Simulated scan of single mutants.
Amino acid sequence: MRIAYLHSGSIPSVYANGVHVMRMCDAFTDAGHDVVLYAPPGTVPVDDVHAYYGTRNRFEVRTVAQPRVPGLGRWIRARRVRADLRRRGVPDLLYGRDLRALLAASDLAPVVYETHLLWPDRAVRGIERLLFGRPNLRRVVFVSQALADDYRRSFPRLGSLRRVDLVTAHDCADPAPEGGPAAGLPGRPGALRIGYVGHLYPGRGTDVILDLADRLPAADFHLVGGTAADREHWQSRCGRPNVHFHGHLPPAGLAPYYRAFDIVLAPYQRKVFCAGGVGEISRWVSPMKLFEYMSHGKAIIASDLPVLREVLDDGVNCLLCPPDSVDAWSDAVTRLAEDQALREALGAEARRRLHDRHTWRARADQVLPAPGEPAGRR
């Protein structure tokens, strides 16, 4: 099948949505599909976008710029994407997260719309209503069950459209190969290495990690990721010698860091924001780093949020803590530090569950309608 993936975020970039989109296009290609990704020009200067993201396949990435026309730039870009699709030959399926481009091209081919948050902007919801009314819409993919439930409440007609499948598909990770080099981390020989990988936006729990470093001076804490501005903000507030900021790394370069960590943290707070404070996503978040932790068989300590319990089981494949209780997080770290067998057991079960349920390749089959598949299945 020929698939055009329509994305509204820059490729390449420092943001997680770019990683998600590239991983999905890679998985679609693994499944035997011919994929072209449409995205705005990148914001990170790289020579090879596929090497930057570490994809296995060299699917085509076509950049379509957004003109700087207030109020109209996104729509103009959407029309340009549609024109390019027609010029190059209409694909068999339009898939993606670019709401305006999907709407603009929805008369050309069947459409699958994937969403990761319920937009607070009424104008965006209005565009979604238009897309939901298009006869070519075949599926809507939600990144968590909580998000699917909220969409059903906000768009009650969506659930009654017999031609549209509603599919919940969590984020994923590729299975990590056994072995491989570990990063040479700064810090003290023999110190427990506690890792965090991800952005440093509000609600990601950076303050919790720094409080833990104060309470647990015998452990070394490593934070990988974040924009230069966010990293500078937190570094200026942290004078502890057991905290190491590593900054943003290409997605293809993260595996050695995962291998080097003894314990990994996912301290999401009760309010979690996207880049620039756009969109509060704590009810629906499905963090890719969580699945990458699982892929590498790491002992995970995560926030006890209802949406994370869709994937995590306390004491089975992780330890869960109240998001804002530093006492509980400190106790959990201490417990794992003193019990290597428990670390290994939690990590092994996390890896097993990732392999069984949450690989990109399996997700590709889950989200795509099969040729000739009848509509209306849930």
Rank of each mutant, 00 (worst) to 15 (best):
P287H: 03
A252M: 07
G253M: 09
G253R: 14
E280G: 07
I281T: 09
V272H: 04
P256Q: 11
W284T: 08
A255D: 14
P251T: 13
P256C: 11
L265I: 02
G276I: 05
I281A: 05
E280Q: 15
V264A: 15
V278Y: 07
V285L: 15
W284S: 00
R283K: 14
I263S: 03
P256A: 11
A266H: 02
D262M: 12
A266Y: 01
G279I: 08
W284F: 10
Y268Q: 12
E280R: 11
V278S: 03
F273Q: 04
A266M: 06
W284N: 03
W284D: 02
P250N: 12
I263E: 11
E280H: 07
G276R: 09
S286I: 03
G277C: 08
D262H: 13
M288N: 14
P250K: 06
A260T: 06
R283W: 13
R283T: 10
F273N: 01
A252C: 11
H248E: 14
V278F: 09
F261K: 02
P267W: 04
V264L: 11
G277I: 09
Y268K: 06
A252V: 10
M288Q: 15
G277F: 10
K289T: 04
L249G: 13
R270M: 09
S282R: 04
Y268M: 12
E280I: 06
G277H: 10
Y268C: 08
R270S: 12
S282G: 07
S282M: 08
W284M: 06
F261E: 01
L265P: 00
M288E: 04
F273H: 12
A275S: 05
V278I: 09
Y268D: 13
F273R: 09
A266E: 08
P251Q: 12
I263N: 01
G276Y: 04
V272T: 15
C274T: 10
L265G: 00
A255Q: 10
L265M: 04
K271G: 05
L254P: 05
A275G: 00
Y258W: 14
K271I: 04
M288A: 12
R283D: 14
R270F: 00
